[in-house]
Computed example of a mutant assay.
Amino acid sequence: MSRPLYQLKAEFFKTLGHPARIRVLELLSEREHCVAEMLPEVGIEPAHLSQQLAVLRRAGLVVTRREGSTVYYALTSPHVAELLYVARQILSGVLSGQAELLRDLHADPT
């Protein structure tokens, strides 16, 4: 029996639920990268980055390409970059709304 779509979506978003994975996907939204290029940008240990990349590979969000001894990672779909962009827009709206509320609270002397 297949799982409901909402459950698959929840699992998909759980995969995105780690800051290092989000940062990796942001980097790969720009262009493909090898691990050595990502390490200083992500700021975690090499073994931990490898684990996070493996999670993203298993989820089908990234693919690899080997050039000599170097492995390059890339997004499987430009939709991943679009999703990150939309998430940024949503967060901007939410934070903007919170900033307005905070201004209103400071303006009200009661």
Results as ranks from 00 to 15, higher is better:
M1F: 05
M1P: 08
S2A: 12
P4N: 07
L5N: 08
L5G: 05
Y6L: 04
Y6Q: 07
Y6E: 10
Q7D: 06
Q7P: 03
K9E: 14
K9C: 07
A10C: 00
F13S: 05
K14M: 10
K14Q: 14
T15A: 04
L16P: 02
G17C: 03
G17N: 12
H18G: 03
H18T: 05
A20R: 09
R21E: 13
R21K: 08
I22P: 01
I22K: 03
R23Q: 14
L25I: 08
L25G: 09
L25H: 06
L25A: 01
E26Y: 01
L27I: 02
L27W: 03
L27Q: 12
L28D: 12
S29D: 00
E30L: 12
E30C: 05
E32C: 04
H33A: 13
H33I: 01
C34P: 00
V35L: 13
V35E: 12
A36W: 00
E37Q: 12
E37C: 03
L39H: 08
G43L: 15
G43E: 13
E45I: 01
E45F: 04
E45N: 01
E45Y: 09
P46N: 05
P46M: 03
A47N: 11
A47D: 09
A47K: 10
H48F: 14
H48A: 15
L49M: 02
L49G: 02
S50Y: 10
S50R: 14
L53H: 13
L53Q: 08
L53E: 11
L56C: 12
R57W: 00
G60R: 02
G60C: 01
V62I: 15
T64I: 08
T64K: 07
R66M: 06
R66D: 07
E67M: 02
G68S: 02
G68K: 00
G68E: 01
G68P: 00
S69N: 11
S69A: 14
S69I: 11
S69T: 09
V71G: 06
V71T: 15
Y72R: 13
Y73V: 03
A74W: 07
L75K: 08
T76C: 15
S77P: 02
S77H: 11
P78K: 05
P78I: 06
H79A: 14
H79E: 15
A81H: 00
L83R: 05
V86N: 01
V86D: 07
A87D: 13
R88D: 14
R88L: 03
R88Y: 06
I90V: 15
I90K: 09
I90R: 12
L91P: 07
L91W: 10
L91M: 15
V94K: 11
V94E: 11
L95V: 06
S96M: 03
S96N: 00
S96L: 04
G97R: 00
G97N: 05
A99I: 14
R103P: 01
R103W: 10
H106P: 04
A107L: 12
A107Q: 09
P109K: 02
